[in-house]
Write a protein that binds this DNA or RNA. Structure first.
Length: 267
DNA sequence: ATGCCATCCAGAGGATGA
């Protein structure tokens, strides 16, 4: 079974690219982030006609996460228990955002996650990011306490570069989000709760990334960040036989700024 | 060793992104 995650940066803009890629890569389960549409705008039929079941949550033009599967898609869950809410505007009522979607596919509990960006160090959105991750750690840790043999995959855009090797030049990020101590600590807490980066052993660095900014020739200059991860429970990790970051898909006109990440699992 | 910012909605500019 092949499971992948991809921040597509608008599914409507890139649906042709995504469907072609799914077929070329023979992917069974795909978690998408930043679909940037409401449920009624999601191009569900384009995936159904290729044999995929579809679960999506999107409330507006922002965020949006999905799981596509051709090996079953059951027990769909919008958001995880205890997920933080966010007030988009001053004085607005805090509400859940479309940043987490769970579904069981081929025996794996897959969570498509779009971790808050954080914007700037000290910004309210930065605190939201840290608290959102702490809540995720609590929920995900609980799943393994309840069932240590569970096959769980926490996949998506984590908006954190956990190691210095995960950016091309730490000096550029001296006062930036994504590399700060508290963010890295929040990421590590999820790992310590029992979830391992199953991709890194198959894609060693340095210089291996999943995201390249559209500006300043970042991609041809190979100046990127590794911020998209597949974190797997022990039972999931044992099934992983290979992994790759599909850098090819970042090339050309109309590419997302993120590359897809694929994991191969033993049957 | 593949290219010089993109997406959305609104409505011709602003917010978001990492």
């Amino acid at each position: 079974m092949r499971l992948a995650t991809w921040n597509v940066n608008s599914v409507r803009t890139r649906v042709d690219r995504v469907t072609a890629w799914l077929q070329r890569r023979d992917v069974d389960v795909l978690a998408l982030q930043e679909t940037k549409c409401r449920d009624d705008q999601f191009p569900e039929e384009r995936f159904r006609e290729l044999g995929y079941e579809v679960a999506h949550v999107g409330y507006s033009q922002w965020n949006g996460v999905a799981v596509l599967s051709r090996v079953g898609l059951d027990d769909v869950e919008v958001g995880f228990p205890g997920m933080l809410t966010w007030a988009a505007k001053e004085g607005a009522e805090p509400a859940a955002e479309a940043r987490a979607l769970g579904a069981t596919c081929g025996g794996v509990r897959v969570w498509s996650l779009y971790v808050p960006n954080g914007r700037q160090l000290g910004d309210p959105h930065y605190d939201y990011k840290l608290e959102w991750l702490a809540a995720l750690r609590t929920a995900a840790g609980g799943w393994l306490t309840a069932d240590p043999a569970a096959q769980v995959a926490l996949v998506g855009d984590w908006n954190i570069a956990p190691q210095d090797d995960d950016v091309w030049d730490m000096k550029v990020f001296a006062h930036s989000t994504h590399v700060s101590g508290p963010e890295r600590e929040a990421f590590r807490a999820v790992v310590e709760a029992g979830y391992a980066d199953v991709v890194r052993p198959h894609t060693p660095g340095p210089g291996v990334y999943t995201y390249w900014d559209y500006t300043q020739l970042r991609f041809p200059r190979r100046e990127g960040m590794r911020i998209d991860f597949v974190l797997g429970s022990p039972a999931f990790e044992r099934r992983v036989t290979n992994a790759l970051i599909d850098r090819q898909e970042r090339k050309g006109k109309g590419a997302s700024d993120h590359a897809p990440v694929i994991v191969e699992l033993a049957d």
